[in-house]
């Protein structure tokens, strides 16, 4: 494979005050790959995901998206400086994000939620944005909920709408931050189905999840994190079948039984 990775992370460090949350991470995500990130709570998974599109500032290391540094730029002497809001926004718009708490806009209908990005950020015409929105909502099975407000939907429906909203920007990659953790158990399946279909279409996905079944069946590789470090990064068969690290084995024992 000669194609450069879509996401490259090098020596990534992130602290909240004195608390070091990410302690030097290195990995790559290639185009079309599905990477699942698992690990105990507090291990830094969500923070890592939020660093990828610079919702969180990182203090050291680099995140490169399509070869472009995220959130910072180099000045003349090679030092890193905060990048302009416009540049950061442009990169963010290429990455869709799906949140644990859905974060749909409650004052807008489902269709308006999905149209918002194309309309405001990509400056599409209302007609184009609506066509795109309807197509995507049909894809996630919500065509009959177009005029509903988020509060009128179930959690599973809200999360599917949120996925459609992120896809409406036609992103190069999708970031999922525990997309099913806030759902009632019987609603998890419908969201995972949509994600699985997306993966099958070749979307690049980074998925922080507690759904071991999804990680095992859908992911190309699984990253195990603990205390701000990557303790294992391998295909699911290896991580679940023959983990190299005793910490991985210990974590899997706790979540699988």
């Amino acid at each position: 494979m000669s194609e450069p990775p879509i996401i490259r992370v090098q020596g990534l460090h992130k602290s909240f005050g004195k608390l070091e949350v990410l302690r030097g991470l290195d990995f790559e995500v290639s185009r079309g790959e599905v990477l699942a990130i698992i690990g105990p709570s507090g291990s830094g998974k969500s923070t890592l995901l939020r660093c990828l599109n610079f919702l969180e500032e990182y203090q050291a290391g680099e995140v490169l998206f399509n070869g472009q540094l995220v959130g910072y730029r180099r000045n003349g002497t090679g030092k890193l400086k905060l990048d302009s809001e416009n540049n950061t926004r442009r990169i963010r718009a290429r990455m869709g994000m799906v949140f644990q708490g859905f974060n749909l806009f409650p004052h807008k209908t489902v269709l308006e939620n999905v149209m918002e990005g194309p309309l405001v950020v990509q400056r599409l015409s209302r007609h184009e944005a609506e066509t795109r929105g309807r197509t995507l909502l049909a894809r996630v099975g919500l065509i009959d909920k177009i005029g509903a407000y988020p509060a009128q939907l179930s959690g599973g429906q809200q999360q599917r709408a949120a996925i459609a909203r992120a896809l409406a920007m036609q992103p190069d990659a999708m970031l999922f931050d525990e997309p099913t953790s806030a759902l009632d158990p019987e609603l998890v399946g419908e969201v995972l189905e949509v994600m699985q279909a997306l993966a099958a279409e070749g979307m690049t996905m980074v998925v922080v999840t507690h759904e071991m079944g999804f990680a095992r069946q859908v992911a190309d590789r699984v990253m195990v994190m603990d205390r701000g470090e990557i303790i294992e990064l391998a295909p699911p068969a290896q991580v679940f079948g023959a983990p190299k690290s005793p910490r991985t084995a210990e974590f899997l024992r706790r979540v699988l039984h």
Partner: peptide, 12 residues
């Protein structure tokens, strides 16, 4: 989460 969602779409 609302401003996170807005930012993630690329809004300023």
């Amino acid at each position: 989460g609302q401003s996170d969602a807005a930012k993630s779409l690329g809004m300023g």
